[in-house]
Nucleic acid binder design. Structure first.
Lengths: 245, 245
DNA sequence: ATTCATCTATCGAACGTTCGTCCGATATTG
DNA sequence: CAATATCGGACGAACGTTCGATAGATGAAT
């Protein structure tokens, strides 16, 4: 398959996933409005969601370039087109802004991941889908993923603990699938949690080093397949075990 | 081997590496003084290096907890015991401080890594040593590694480019070893740069998620062996290829 | 041995700027 | 006209940075 065709197929796969998973900036911001409505003084939902999307979008863009701490609300006002005072109709403080984005991002990611995995039965298929969904989802919501990773330290202690717990829960999704595969003999016997941690590290590299992968012509779907192959080879039963089973 | 014994051996391996590699906070700060002496107005080398070490140590500690941008020079003064004015005898600006730490860290890491790898001959041994050296070195200089990763965005454009180049050079060390192994048939034929990138992602996880690994009782030497096994299995020639060679 | 002048390293108050936040005024809408 | 959404100037706090003062060490002269 020539590269051009491969790239088009990869783009198709991403488009299909985006539609099926039903995640988008607007959708996430609607969830924020529904849940943190008391922090938003704007009554009209259409207006509120649209402005929230602009605020979140700008926050992610600026914070991912120079860090959330270095982003001033004047930066944010300029980029969103709102005024300083206008911004405060949508959050109570700068700290609350980071907390809201963190919480809603975590929740949605975990939700989508579980929903996708649960569409498959065998451990092999579930692991492949978990990998694929993670890469494609982090491609669609890349700024959001990067923000979750890089700006968790700006959270208060309680919310920070929550963020760590949520991340380990994601890792546990992978570990559980690996244990299933070990139980039915399709994966070799090794520390499932450690294997999950290594897979997760590779998956995170996709969005944390986006520039590098892009420069090398890697696509999201292609990267997912590479990680699936890594998992397959790492977890493949050794020949002797295959015989004894 | 019972865990307690394994942990002691792992600690021994780390101690030996620290001595052989000859890296330490004081040594790195001596290098900073030697190279950026014109930025340091203090003449007495003993005093200068000792204070530089306290400044760098405090900077890494504070910045890794709440981010370099959120660290004020008043925080730094309190932690080092120096005054605001006193700090400025050791660097010209806050921006220069981050740049100096970045540059010196990059240089030393690359140097040690190459020196360690060059002590071995076969591709297998060189890859294992590259992995081992990376994990152990990042264990010794963990705050420094974390700072390099998390605070690269505070650099100016030119120095930022330099940081990216240096990181890709580290990755290229791994890629080159993999290509050597592919040439002599000890590794299977696959994209060497992509394989190196995935290995690097797993290696970075060691210092970026230090708390998690610690909680799970993982040691540096133990983690190195786990990554070596990952590499071995991922790069192992497939049975058919073994036969045809 | 003591004095005094010089140099060195450090200090901390002060400066101008920018920050997050607030609030009375204004524009828009039904 | 009432309700809503947005505006932008103003405020105190905190920021990075500067600089004249100071304490301690050093060394030459008495």
């Amino acid at each position: 398959m020539v590269p051009a065709v491969a790239n088009r197929r990869a783009a198709d796969e991403l488009r299909v996933f985006r539609r099926d998973a039903g995640v988008s900036m607007t959708e996430l911001c609607r969830a924020i409005y529904a849940e943190h409505g008391d922090s938003v003084s704007v009554q009209n939902e259409t207006i509120a969601v649209a402005n929230l999307a602009r605020i979140v979008d700008a926050t992610l863009a600026i914070a991912n370039r120079k860090g959330f701490a270095a982003m001033s609300l004047r930066d944010l006002a300029r980029r969103t087109g709102l005024s300083l005072g206008g911004l405060y109709a949508y959050f109570q403080s700068k700290d609350e802004l980071v907390a809201v984005i963190q919480r809603q991002g975590q929740r949605q990611i975990e939700q989508v991941l579980r929903r996708q995995v649960d569409q498959h039965v065998t451990a092999r298929a579930r692991l492949d889908e978990a990998i694929r969904a993670h890469v494609l989802l982090s491609e669609i919501l890349r700024p959001w993923f990067v923000f979750l990773y890089m700006e968790a330290r700006h959270l208060g202690q309680a919310e920070r603990r929550q963020a760590v717990a949520m991340e380990e829960a994601t890792e546990e999704i992978f570990a559980a699938i690996i244990r299933e595969g070990q139980a039915d003999g399709s994966f070799r016997d090794t520390d499932a949690l450690a294997a999950a941690a290594m897979l997760k590290a590779v998956l995170q590299d996709w969005y944390l080093k986006h520039g590098k992968h892009g420069r090398r012509g890697q696509t999201a779907a292609g990267y997912a397949r590479a990680v699936q192959e890594l998992a397959t080879r790492y977890l493949a039963p050794t020949p002797m075990e295959e015989i004894t089973v």
